[in-house]
Simulated scan of single mutants.
Amino acid sequence: MTSVSEGRIHGGAVPLITRGPLRTTLRAGDGVRIEAVYEPCTAGAAAADGAAGAGTAIVLAHGFTGSADRPAVRRAAEVFAQRAAVVTFSFRGHGGSGGRSTVGDREVLDLAAAVAWARSLGHRRIVTAGFSMGGSVVLRHGALYTAPGVREEGGGRTEAHGEAHADAVVSVSAPARWFYRGTAPMRRLHWMVTRPTGRLVGRYGFRTRIDRRPWDPVPLSPVEAAGRIAPAPLLIVHGDRDPYFPLDHPRTLAEAAGGAAELWLEPGMGHAENAADESLLTRISDWATAR
């Protein structure tokens, strides 16, 4: 798994904001094919007339072993679409996308391609909302892909970053640091990612193709990324019954953001999109369209 910080977005001409669902194949910055689905805001005429969410698209980044067509992702997209247009996609190695999963490294290129596609459809404002692995990816993407005119430390960005940046970021059930093995579910996940037998289980049991190569170099960590997202608004959401990552993870992320992040600790919530109920998803979409 080779760490990257930027790449050019590949894609053809697409129409401006469409009235119906649209499914396409995008090209990430390294050429990997990414399946993506666009769904317009179901508020219909109200959104077109300038209600909250008009012009906004939420790009939904699923968790590890998920995909654009998994029921939990579809449910989240349906709730988000009540407030804004929604782009869902499958990370590399998942669903109908090509390539192999790098478990949060090169996936930032997949998200960038989806964000750039949403802008090409005519949306003026893009909010990324990621769950678990997707939550770590939206944090890293928010740190690496900055809006035009926002100067990064150490130099500028490629032209692709101007169209692929997020205007606000929502990270749900994300880890604060890499290589965490403090819970039984995370130890099982590390076995699946690092062992040949585990990768076979991932491929045939979870329909997820996993890259066997280790990260080189190790990508920017979620906690480091959280401190670099401002001035874009950041929302961190985490359940107090998350079996993967205990509450020190979201608290560390919020602390790293230096007070610029909003932190929601959800009573009784488990992990990621499977545990996010309609009420929480509605509150997230309300936050996304109000910023």
Rank of each mutant, 00 (worst) to 15 (best):
M1H: 10
M1E: 14
P15Q: 04
G20Q: 13
T24R: 13
G31Q: 11
V32T: 15
E35F: 00
A36K: 08
Y38S: 00
D49G: 13
A52Q: 12
A52I: 01
G55C: 10
T56A: 10
G63F: 08
R74I: 04
R74C: 12
A76I: 00
E78V: 00
F91D: 15
G95V: 08
G104A: 13
R119K: 06
G122V: 13
H123M: 04
V127L: 07
V127E: 09
G130A: 10
G130Y: 07
F131H: 02
M133T: 09
G134C: 06
G135S: 02
G135L: 01
V138L: 11
L144I: 02
T146D: 10
R151L: 13
G154F: 12
G155W: 06
G155N: 12
R157Q: 14
A160R: 11
A160D: 12
G162F: 03
H165F: 13
A166N: 06
S173M: 05
S173A: 14
A174G: 05
F179G: 09
A184H: 09
M186L: 13
R187H: 08
V193M: 10
T194M: 11
P196W: 15
T197I: 11
G198Q: 08
G198S: 11
G202F: 00
R213G: 07
W215H: 13
P219I: 09
P222N: 08
V223D: 14
R228K: 14
A230W: 08
P231H: 05
I236W: 09
V237M: 08
V237Q: 07
H238A: 08
F245E: 10
P246S: 10
L247Y: 03
A254L: 06
W264G: 02
L265K: 01
L265H: 07
P267F: 15
N274P: 12
A275C: 11
L280D: 12
R283I: 03
T289M: 02
T289G: 02
